[in-house]
Structures are given as structure tokens and as C-alpha cells.
Design a protein around this nucleic acid. Structure first.
Length: 270
DNA sequence: CATCGGACCTGTTAGC
DNA sequence: TGCTAACAGGTCCGAT
């Protein structure tokens, strides 16, 4: 489900409910996520005050005095802020209970998400080798051009590589390539510096617009207040195989590498 | 190093 | 209507 805009939407949704709250209890109902949730997590966070709620890539970081809870939503995870008495639903795996008598409830049908711990001042190995944030100044056309020179993989796979740039998943990769007029199958190392600059501008614009829309709801994404995102209406190619291009009316085509489908317009993207 | 396929899971949908 | 297969927003890991 979640790419950067959905994770950022989640962050903004939970932040006001979490900041300054004391954690009264962490309940792990199901520890078998992407990695087994360590039971000592519950002791670590007990009675701690939440100092900040940050995002790095698609990870949420809940900062406490001694360190941070790292939460990843995987493919199907979501966080809601609910009254502690709210009945648990299927796939509700973790509750972070707060002094406000609310709970941050983690639901994840596919269990590809994760809850981990990072000591203060340290960087978890999973976060240690991530590429730059797409909305930061570090990320520009020159950077992408430079690090792509030896890459023969399709440019679409290249921009989805979290070591190159974080936060761009299957939806936004397809959309950004369409907006930049670049065929997803082109070898990353053969794309010009000028085209990478256009691509960077489009990635930024699309991610920002999607955040403003509250993310993309294809089937089940909801923000922490239970509302869907509205960016799906704005999609030009993702999930539109066989339909008419909104720009030139040519039929949208699909290609698949490694189990991930991508859609593109053969006329608009060269 | 870079790339590929398999793995981890459940739910929904398309096709027979 | 019912069963099965394919596919879904992520990404790590081991083999090549």
C-alpha cells in the first residue's frame, strides 16, 4: 500500500495525537511480522514520552528519550488512532497505548510490515544505506545521472531502488516516468542528464501533489483518521492498461519485470 | 558490484 | 455458484 506520500500522510495524521504523550503500554498481539517483533520492545518504551514523529524513506520513527520505535507499513500495513476501548479487528497486531487513553493501532493483513528499535544516536542497519530523500536538495538530476552510469537495469527499477532514492514505489515510479516522457524499459545508464533533471522535477511534483491529496487509495489505504486518499483520480498510467492515454488517447500498455507491472504510454514516453 | 528470482503473507478478483 | 490461479502499494536475501 504505502509509498512515501501514504507514509507521510500517516505521519501527519498520527503526530498531533502522539506528541507529548506518555506510552502507558505496548501490546504485541502478533509478533510475526516481516521480522519478529522483539518482546523487549514493550519494556523499552514503557513510561517514555513521545518527543517527535519523523519519517525517513518509508519508515516512521517515533522518538523517545532512549531511542526510536521504527515502524514500516510494508505492503498492507496501516496505523489508526483510536480509543483504547475500540474493539480489535482482524489483523490488528500491535497497540501503542497512550496516556490520553487513545491507542495507536497497527493493522497489517499481509504482515510485511515491521516494528523495530533504534538506540538513540545510532542508525539501524536497515536505514543505514538508504538513498537521499526525494524532496531534499541532495536529490537532483546530476546525482541521478552520476549514480546511474554503470546501471543496465530499466530506469523504472532504478528509481525504485531505495539505495538510489527512497520513497518511490510502483505507482509513483510509473507516474513520474510518464510525466517525464521516459519509457520505463530504458536502461538507467543510457538516460541523459537533461532527462534525469526532468524526471527529478516530476518525481518531486507528483510526490508533493499526492501528499496534498492524502495519498493514493487503490483499495484500502486510509489515513489515521480513517479517511482515504484522493490521488488515485489523478493517475495517468498506473493501473490503466488498455485504457486511453489522458494526454494523447493512445492505448496505455503494460510491461512486467520481476513480478512488478508497469504501465506506460507508447506515444508520450520515448 | 549489479541483477535476478524467491521468499515472506493474506485478501481480492479474474477466469474457467 | 464455486474453485483456482494470478496478482496486489515492499524489500530483504542468497545465488549468479
Amino acid at each position: 500500500m504505502p509509498e512515501l506520500p501514504e507514509v507521510e500522510t500517516t505521519r501527519r495524521g498520527i503526530e498531533p495525537h502522539l506528541l507529548g504523550q506518555t506510552i502507558t503500554r505496548l501490546l504485541i498481539h502478533e509478533s510475526r511480522l516481516r521480522w519478529r517483533v522483539p518482546s523487549r520492545l514493550a519494556l523499552r518504551v514503557l513510561e517514555a514520552e513521545i518527543e517527535a514523529v519523523r519519517r525517513r524513506a518509508k519508515y516512521l520513527l517515533i522518538d523517545l528519550a532512549q531511542g526510536s520505535l521504527i515502524v514500516h507499513l510494508g505492503m498492507s500495513g496501516s496505523l489508526r488512532v483510536l480509543p483504547q476501548t475500540y474493539p480489535r479487528q482482524k489483523h490488528d497486531h500491535i497497540d501503542l497505548e497512550l496516556s490520553s487513553n487513545q491507542t495507536l493501532r497497527f493493522n497489517d493483513p499481509r504482515r510485511f510490515g515491521s516494528w523495530l528499535w533504534q538506540h538513540r544516536g545510532q542508525t539501524h542497519e536497515l536505514l543505514a544505506h538508504l538513498g537521499p530523500e526525494p524532496l531534499s536538495d541532495e536529490f537532483d538530476g546530476d546525482y541521478l545521472w552520476r549514480v546511474s552510469r554503470t546501471r543496465r537495469a530499466p530506469v523504472k527499477n532504478f528509481i525504485m531502488d531505495q539505495n538510489i532514492v527512497v520513497g518511490v514505489g510502483n505507482i509513483y515510479a510509473a507516474e513520474a516516468l510518464f510525466a517525464a516522457g521516459i519509457r520505463p524499459a530504458i536502461e538507467a545508464g543510457k538516460v541523459s542528464r537533461a532527462r534525469y533533471q526532468v524526471l527529478v522535477d516530476e518525481i518531486r511534483r507528483i510526490l508533493l501533489e499526492a501528499i496534498q491529496c492524502g495519498g493514493t487509495t487503490l483499495r484500502d489505504f486510509v489515513n489515521p483518521d480513517g479517511a482515504p486518499g484522493y490521488f488515485a483520480q489523478t493517475l495517468f498510467v498506473y493501473g490503466r492498461e488498455g485504457e486511453a492515454c489522458k494526454s494523447c488517447a493512445h492505448t496505455i500498455r503494460a510491461a512486467t519485470w520481476g513480478q512488478r507491472q508497469t504501465c506506460y504510454c507508447p506515444r508520450c514516453q520515448t
